[in-house]
Design a protein around this nucleic acid. Sequence first.
DNA 1: ATGCATTTGAGATTCATTCTCATTAAAATT
DNA 2: AATTTTAATGAGAATGAATCTCAAATGCAT
Lengths: 142, 142
Amino acid sequence: MKKEKDLYRDFLRSKNLKMTKPRLIIMEAVFENHEHFNVDDLYEQIKKRHKNVSRATIYRTVPLLVESGLIKQSLRCESKDIYEHTYGHENHLHFICEKCGKIIESGFSDVANLIDILAEKENFKISEYNLGARGFCKNCQK
Amino acid sequence: MKKEKDLYRDFLRSKNLKMTKPRLIIMEAVFENHEHFNVDDLYEQIKKRHKNVSRATIYRTVPLLVESGLIKQSLRCESKDIYEHTYGHENHLHFICEKCGKIIESGFSDVANLIDILAEKENFKISEYNLGARGFCKNCQK
DNA sequence: ATGCATTTGAGATTCATTCTCATTAAAATT
DNA sequence: AATTTTAATGAGAATGAATCTCAAATGCAT
């Protein structure tokens, strides 16, 4: 968490952006609890801690966290954009259950290697993988 | 196209849904031009042909086409849900350029096989792959 | 501490998608 | 082929996530 904060601070500095209290609170919220989260999750989480940050600010800050490389956008869930940590996390696949909404993570590096090869062929520079599948998890297969 | 139409008709019948004029027009539009399309594309396309179908009806019909297996939802683009044909199309990867929005398709079956293996491990039944990557296409790499 | 540029909060706005409901159309029945 | 039943449509209203606006507040260099 120390590391993340430093990276964030450096990133902001490099962009001539200020390290403000709301930006800190949001980044703490992001790194406190979650594997996957959306803006509303963050908003509720922050409010619970008796801190106060407007939704607008969270919407403005999340893209900064993405740009800094600390989190990335994941597949959408329930018509909301969702995000996940990247710093210190291996790339992984998502299996999203269409019934219960559960998100199962699974290994990845072999898949990524293959995709890298395909991208190479197209002369495409990948900045973010977006890999998953919808279907039904163990419990929801009746 | 004959085949698709029959599949569609059978699907509707199996669900006790009616084969209506709007549903036909929409399905024709879907299969006339596009690789990838969104609801607005369909709406404009249909209007151009001097036919008239409301947006609401397109929004209601697209999920039927998805359920019937003729099309599937793809990665979002420009904050719109986009769809693509599946019938008669191999699974493929998407490389989505963040600058020009271009969608490059690439081979897939090796990747799919790997993912099948991972899903097997999780006892997860895949109904739809959702594989892609964002980044920059050849032309947009400055 | 002072001044200036940036950021924030609150609410308004946008825009894709969904919903409502009175009207219309398809299929089933006669 | 007319009638009944049932589902589907169109038009516009409603929803809700995400974005924008702008006056007030804050961070930071000096």
